[in-house]
Design a protein around this nucleic acid. Structure first.
Lengths: 346, 346
DNA sequence: GATTAGCACTCACTTTACGCGAGTGCTAAA
DNA sequence: TTTAGCACTCGCGTAAAGTGAGTGCTAATC
């Protein structure tokens, strides 16, 4: 991968930008005319041949223009990463929407997914914040019918888990409330292993509930992420390179199957930190189904307390110039919201 | 729509079944050979001409076999409605899966959606149970950081709402708990309008929270359904009639936009009752985007307390024989679960 | 040495033509 | 009422020919 001359860089960037806009292979003539370069098409052709030789461009077929290779996109994204900033007007629109939904925690992720999908015209994915180390905060026991009890448990970091418990025998709401109060006092702020290390309770009901709480905390702890939200799946179908063939269908299938999606996010986001941004182009992610796609991913949240992943999947020729700053901006916003509301110690 | 002779009915049903299986227009010859009818193809042709005349069949073009019209499908479904029963083996598989997930309330709907999508090879949709009249059950206030409070409200029917409240000034967890306890005593079992009719509280914090509770109850009351879950979107793309053209994309877009989907479900499910089953074929639903599709919908839950909608969207030639009993079975199962866990009076 | 005009060449895409065959509707005989 | 026979229709697949955008190379020019 030899160094590129100034002119080669310009040409590569122009071709990439043009191809992203038009989805058509870019020819030498078009390049000269549209961007009024002070060169002839023949010169451009020579440079394009060089860029092709170096692996930044390729020809779909002999008599066609050039298209960026993965390497070409990578160069393009590398250039863009630093400069790209979201227009202020859009920033305002987005933050306004979040402001409106600030009260409804469950809406945050869906809203983020919606915004990302619309702005990027790709498929968005957002995971709810999830704590690396689960820490108990609060439990509530609500009698419903007979021996059935609805348990609502809140964890530090804001995760809420609802469970239906079936007790051995009916218990009054009053006793349930007392048990909940005792457990809240006992468990407040404890991490999973601290809860596990507690001695058995003398009260049978307390012990039963404690066991269930422990099991539930363990379940949550073992999951790699919070609930997953996606949006904009149909956007991918609108892209010309996917309209035919079932390439898009296979990619979407990956996103639909939550367990694989979770796996994908866990694997790729593991080595990125909050604030950082990761762009996976084509085969870079290692998923066969996504070799025609790119992903822009970011982690958000409060490290050590609760973090999540969000990002966009699009065709390899997605509008990085629009997607990258949007992902970054939304990640920052969500981080702030997580921090403001559940981030504090208490 | 004249009456059909026995023989015409048989032919119509066979053609419909064959077309559902093969996605190919059915010719007279094929019909005779595959189903060893004791008739010649010429006779069949005459009958097919009659059925076409009556509007049950149509020809995609002159030299092609016959395909059912909407009316044809409607007749087919009418015949099937009564007899169709889900094979016991499948019943067991499904109920087993639900049994495994019985504790996790938030998993029910996702599981139902997954099962429906897999069984029917269509796009499934499930709404969380939603009460027609919201009734207060329980509230919990959890201090998080500074003036931020996480409010978890449980409604009769099991709906849980999380909200972030921002108070005018910081309040201790202790005071929050006391307020919650007072409000729980005061509001237990009250419907929205009863809560609205309450006199103002003397305690300022109590009053503030009460106002917020009221607003939240109103918000929930005004929404036409609980959260919506879907699955199997890619199934639609696999269908041959959708592989080309963006017909499928437009239909999926409808499902992706939650507000329109909510609208669609509210409109179509309004006039059906729990236990009943509704099959909307083609343009019957009144949605232009779905004129090539059919929907099988059912309501589930406990009437008067909490109900939801579930169903499947598929191509018009979807496997009704498989979808209808599955939808019915899953609806019944969910109804049972809702009834068992949150259905009781308390 | 870099740039450019000129030109032959390649090859996907479109259009046109045409044969094939499945399927039909009609008629006349059984 | 059913059926054999037959002419007819028309979508579909294949082949052939034409079109044109775009290239790479060579030789002239700056």
């Amino acid at each position: 991968m030899a160094d590129l001359t100034e002119r080669q860089q310009t040409i590569l960037l122009l071709i990439t930008r043009d191809y992203i806009d038009t989805a058509q292979p870019v020819g030498s003539k078009r390049l000269v005319e549209h961007y009024h370069l002070d060169l002839s098409s023949a010169t451009i052709r020579n440079e394009m041949a060089a860029l092709t030789e170096m692996g930044y461009l390729r020809q779909p077929h002999t008599s066609a223009g050039r298209v960026p290779t993965e390497e070409g996109y990578r160069f393009f994204v590398g250039q863009m990463m630093h400069q790209a900033e979201l227009p202020e007007a859009i920033q305002h629109t987005i933050s306004h929407q979040f402001y409106q939904a600030r009260a409804d925690v469950d809406q945050w992720m869906a809203l983020a997914a919606s915004i990302l999908a619309h702005q990027s015209q790709g498929v968005s994915v957002v995971t709810a914040p999830h704590a690396e180390t689960v820490r108990f905060k609060h439990v509530e026991l609500i009698s419903t019918q007979g021996r059935q009890v609805l348990m609502v448990m809140v964890l530090a970091g804001g995760e809420v888990s609802q469970q239906i418990l079936t007790l051995a025998e009916p218990v009054s709401q009053e006793r349930l409330s007392q048990t909940a109060a005792r457990l809240n006092g006992l468990l407040a702020g404890l991490a999973l292993d601290a809860v596990a290390a507690l001695p058995a309770r003398s009260d049978a009901l307390d012990q039963d509930i404690l066991t269930l709480i422990l099991a539930d905390m363990r379940r949550i702890s073992e999951s790699t992420s919070g609930q997953i939200y996606t949006d904009g799946q149909t956007n991918l179908l609108a892209e010309p390179e996917f309209s035919e063939s079932d390439e898009a269908r296979r990619a979407l299938r990956l996103f639909e199957e939550r367990s694989t999606l979770r796996d994908l996010l866990a694997r790729t986001a593991a080595n990125s930190s909050v604030g950082g941004l990761q762009v996976l182009i084509g085969s870079e992610g290692g998923w066969e189904e996504l070799r025609q796609c790119s992903m822009v991913l970011a982690r958000y949240g409060v490290p050590g307390l609760a973090t999540g992943t969000l990002g966009v999947l699009g065709p390899m020729r997605m509008s990085y110039a629009r997607t990258i700053p949007t992902v970054r901006y939304v990640a920052d916003l969500l981080s702030d919201m997580v921090n403001d509301t559940i981030g504090g110690n208490d």
